[in-house]
């Protein structure tokens, strides 16, 4: 039923009325595929054959970023903070592949060293947002009535705030720092996530298999972890991967307002905000960190999507 290259065909699911329930659950290796064309090949060959170019490219890019985050010194031995005013605003060259910035710092080195704080902001802020959203969504969608009510109201109030206001207030209260920026961004994306996840929970809850689980007398926690969460995971996945780029960008918006990661730290968002002043004189200042953000976000999204698809298909 699913061809070896995992084209769009999928188990027929999602008929408007009653989705055939548990077919999508990742309940271990599905025997069905083994009867397919690849059946005769060893498992690792099957895996390999199924790896697509997109996945490979995404994985390589992400690995590169992770490597940069873990051991930036390997990829760029220089210091990201070493200034050299005489060398300011050098366009890309062999000596400075991404050019130099307004203080003569090497942009390549800064992009590499910026991977750790940037990805940390991206991952941590997204995680904060998602966890908050999951808790609120779960409480609202599945808990007892009073909890549902409370969580519902909290989400609503949360929502009613423009995200940036939360960030502005938090920063005004504590002063700007990367940690505060991360929390602020996490808080400001949480309502959006909560909304999507809440909607997803609602959709899944109405599905036949959950109703069946209710009939079987499963408790809400078991229903949640066993049925609802795995089925809503697709959206969560997309949100998480998208969130990576989005949160870094939101943090850079704070830098634009002068409230983000304090200078001169090498962080993609802050670099982007600082470089915009010289958009016309030195466009490479924004192109390099901007491309890094987009690459990280795109690679994470594409890979995320593929993995999710695979989970569904298997």
């Amino acid at each position: 039923m699913s061809d070896s290259h995992g084209q769009r065909s999928r188990p027929p699911e999602e008929a408007p009325e009653a989705p055939p329930a548990d077919m999508r659950l990742p309940t271990g290796p599905n025997r069905a595929t083994e009867t397919g064309r690849d059946g005769a090949l060893p498992a690792w060959r099957r895996m390999l054959r199924r790896i697509r170019l997109v996945e490979l490219a995404s994985a390589v890019i992400l690995l590169l970023f992770v490597a940069a985050a873990v051991a930036p010194g390997l990829l760029a031995p220089g210091s990201p903070l070493a200034v050299n005013p005489v060398d300011a605003f050098q366009p890309p060259s062999w000596a400075h592949p991404f050019g130099t910035d307004e203080s003569g710092r090497d942009v390549y080195t800064r992009v590499v060293h910026g991977a750790r704080p940037s990805l940390l902001i991206g991952v941590a802020a997204t995680a904060i947002g998602l966890v908050l959203a999951l808790v609120l969504g779960a409480a609202a969608g599945l808990g007892p009535r009073w909890l549902d009510f409370t969580a519902g109201r909290v989400t609503e109030v949360f929502f009613a705030f423009p995200g940036i206001l939360l960030a502005l207030l938090l920063i005004a209260l504590t002063g700007p720092s990367p940690v505060v920026a991360t929390i602020a961004v996490g808080l400001s994306v949480a309502p959006g996530y909560a909304r999507i996840i809440g909607g997803e929970f609602r959709r899944v809850r109405q599905a036949g298999y959950v109703e069946a689980a209710v009939l079987l007398g499963h408790g809400w926690w078991r229903r949640f972890t066993g049925h609802i969460l795995p089925n809503a995971l697709g959206s969560v996945f997309v949100l998480a991967t998208l969130g990576l780029g989005q949160t870094i960008v939101w943090a850079s918006a704070l830098s634009f307002l002068g409230l983000g990661t304090p200078p001169p730290a090498a962080e993609w968002g802050a670099m982007l905000a600082a470089g915009r002043t010289y958009l016309e004189v030195a466009p490479w200042l924004t192109i390099a960190p901007g491309t890094a953000i987009v690459l990280a976000a795109t690679a994470a999204t594409l890979l995320g999507r593929s993995l999710e698809q695979r989970v569904r298909e298997s």
Partner: peptide
């Protein structure tokens, strides 16, 4: 097909990862 879907995703993710202040400045330019 798949290529256009991947392209579409790339475009969407790129669009979603564009900071307003940068995009606005480029549009003005």
């Amino acid at each position: 097909g798949r290529v256009s879907r991947v392209l579409g995703t790339i475009m969407e993710v790129t669009a979603a990862a564009l900071p307003h202040f940068w995009l606005g400045a480029v549009l003005i330019l």
